[in-house]
Amino acid sequence: MNIFRLCGDMSHLAAIIILLLKMWKTRSVAGISGKSQILFATVFTARYLDLFTSFISIYNTCMKVFFIGTVYFTIYLIYMKFKATYDSNHDSFRVEFLIVPVGGLAFLVNHEFAPLEIIWTFSIYLESVAILPQLFMISKTGEAETITSHYLFALGSYRALYLCNWIYRYYAEGFFDLIAVVAGVVQTILYCDFFYLYITKVMKGKKISLPA
């Protein structure tokens, strides 16, 4: 474990907590893409299949349980408890256009042609594009609530910090995982224009409103 990875995990944790607080306090899921949350649930389920078979550390296990539990709770809030506030018209991204190519790529490009490894690779590739329905929804509605912007900033920062973690691990431990790094770079790049908007607008107290 290193400071970059710890900050990355804390940023990821903060993103999930910010999202839950937004939903619980405002009792609304307006502006939140249920499809992205479903993709994140798929990512966590596929990646943490080894939750019961391989023990890394208490921290690792607790975080996995927390991530899986909260993402399914988020889906419950979106599609059941606060269903009336879910904006399905604007959440219209065709996720099959993500899942099929990512699934195929996981079969073709992986570290080992073994079921658990292919599923892990699928979760890494899927995570890099899982935010697209959410960014697409914001581009369609033309704006994002400030709290949603904080959620996205924390979520985008988590993988950017992981990139720093991989640089550190390469020089400190000789650890290198090309698949995770390439997917992490793609994932972080997808947030770049949002990061720009966040820093130029939200940090100055303005709301993010894209030219609709």
Binding site: R5, H12, R47, I56, N60, H111, Y162, G174, F176
Partner: peptide
């Protein structure tokens, strides 16, 4: 590629 046998990252 020398990722550990098991993936130790979240």
């Amino acid at each position: 590629y020398n990722n550990r046998e098991e993936h130790d990252e979240l």
